[in-house]
Amino acid sequence: MSALVSEVGTRTAAAAHNLVKVYGKGDTAVRALDGVSVAFQAGRFTAIMGPSGSGKSTLMHCLAGLDTVDGGAIHVGQTEITKLNDKDLTKLRRDRVGFVFQAFNLLPTLTAEQNILLGLELAGRKPDKEWFDTIVDVLGLRDRLTHRPTELSGGQQQRVACARALVARPEVIFADEPTGNLDSRSGAEVLDFLRMSVRKMGQTVIMVTHDPVAASYADRVVLLADGRLAGEIHQPTTESVVNALTHLGA
């Protein structure tokens, strides 16, 4: 698996090359990522899957510039982010990357609208009013804009998080178990929306999940086991994902 797994003719939104991440030292050292090379195409919805401890979350954190690496290189667009310092990494996250986390996505002190626009404000950018309206309407958040997170349901909170990620039109949106805390209906809504944002709005989404149903919404599933790449599935279905995971011994 040393060659880049890529599709001919598409632009790469993010890529890792021979990525190594070690936790701990000496005897207790764990190689969370052990030479992972993978590329993610722009305008596609990719899911990263694997059993617990396979390194999928670590891979995403490194790709997004949230964590440092111990070896290898990561590119977001044309930028090699493994060379950036903390300040530039912060700027990169602010200007070029969007996030949807599993939980605790929103600041409790801000209203839904303020949460959505937070990233733009941090960057000092003016929100595109039309784009903002489109997103808010698509996500059905129009009558929830003045509410604070504690006044929103879990599904609504996740939709606000999605809106925040989208409103800045980032190069990549990273989603870390975005449906992990949701009931299946709310989860389906969020996944539908992520897929639609890729299909209709041309977004790039990279999602970490352990749920085969969630993974089936993606265009492609990248499988990880023991810190190494363990295969991939194109146009996945729930069944094909479950099968692949079973083979991984999950």
Binding site: A64, K87, T90, R93, R94, F101, F104, L107
Partner: peptide, 16 residues
């Protein structure tokens, strides 16, 4: 702690 981490993830610099 989590909130601060979220803010940092969203692009708040250490200085900010």
């Amino acid at each position: 702690t989590r909130e601060s981490a979220l803010l940092r993830a969203l692009g708040l610099t250490r200085g900010q």
